[in-house]
Computed example of a mutant assay.
Amino acid sequence: MIAAAQTPRRRRGFAALMSVLLVVIILFATAPLLSVLLSSWIAAANDCVLNEGGVHPCVIAGVDHGETLAIMFVAGWFMFFTVPAGAAALAVWLIVLVLGLVMRRQGRNPAQ
């Protein structure tokens, strides 16, 4: 009876862990893209010049955010690392998910 009570808890734990890992992998892989999009949106909303060529002044509410926006924009180059690493992590995640589901199915009905 004790083993039967722990099984649903383990299943929920596995599902929760896999869900959290998926979100972390996706956020890691897309973080540079999100940085570029956010900096571009902020610069466009405030009529600022933003490019890889250098830092341009961007005064928002009396404070110059040009350097911060330039760093966020250039951080997009990290996509050359994060996207392939995220794809590899996603492949490993998928393998672990399939193995976990197969093991769960075999544990429930060992005759198959």
Rank of each mutant, 00 (worst) to 15 (best):
I2N: 11
T7P: 10
P8W: 02
R11I: 10
R11G: 05
R11H: 06
R12P: 14
R12A: 15
G13I: 07
G13K: 05
F14A: 09
A16M: 13
L17E: 10
M18L: 12
M18K: 09
M18Y: 05
L21V: 05
L21F: 05
V24C: 10
L27G: 11
L27D: 13
L27A: 13
F28L: 02
A29D: 01
A29E: 00
T30S: 07
P32Q: 07
P32E: 04
L33S: 05
L34W: 11
V36T: 06
V36E: 00
V36C: 09
V36S: 02
L37K: 05
L38S: 12
L38A: 11
L38M: 13
S39A: 06
S39D: 01
S40C: 08
A44W: 04
A44F: 08
A45C: 11
A45N: 12
A45L: 09
V49Y: 07
L50R: 04
L50A: 00
N51F: 00
G53K: 08
V55Y: 00
H56A: 09
H56E: 03
H56C: 03
P57K: 13
A61C: 09
A61H: 10
V63H: 15
D64F: 05
H65E: 15
G66D: 10
E67R: 11
E67N: 09
T68Q: 12
M72P: 04
M72N: 06
M72D: 02
F73H: 00
F73E: 00
A75H: 03
F78M: 15
M79E: 14
F80M: 12
F80Q: 07
V83F: 04
P84D: 00
P84I: 00
P84M: 01
A85T: 07
G86P: 01
G86Y: 00
A88P: 07
A89Q: 03
L90K: 08
A91Q: 01
A91P: 00
W93G: 06
L94K: 09
L94Y: 08
L94A: 05
L97Y: 15
L97Q: 11
L99H: 08
G100D: 02
V102P: 06
G107Y: 02
G107S: 09
P110Q: 00
P110W: 00
A111S: 12
